[in-house]
């Protein structure tokens, strides 16, 4: 597997505003953005993230999806799967 050096842009701009609301994160959000980049993205705030995603996109996430989310890109994949 080769790694891609270019930071991919998000196709769901709402994710950036959710990151700012939930994590008070002001930096750029790319698909690769992960808890390593976002200081307040800990196991507790993960719950707030899940809730924000559910209300913003009117979807219901499963336990597996909750665990699957390890980066902004994971969120996008899930949103696509939900047909958002």
């Amino acid at each position: 597997m080769d790694t891609c050096p270019i930071r991919e842009e998000l196709s769901y701009p709402e994710i950036a505003s959710i990151f700012s609301d939930v994590f008070q994160y002001a930096g750029p959000v790319a698909r690769e953005t992960s808890p390593d980049d976002v200081e307040r993205w800990d196991s507790l705030q993960h719950i707030a993230l899940i809730r924000a995603l559910e209300t913003t996109f009117s979807i219901r996430l499963s336990m597996d999806e909750m665990m699957e989310i390890r980066s902004a890109g994971d969120i996008e994949n899930i949103l696509q799967r939900h047909g958002v």
């Binding site: 196991s43 507790l44 719950i47 899940i50 996430l61 499963s62 336990m63 909750m66």
Partner: peptide
């Protein structure tokens, strides 16, 4: 339920 199992919410 997932929040209950995740963190006993």
């Amino acid at each position: 339920p997932k929040l209950w199992y995740y963190g006993r919410l």
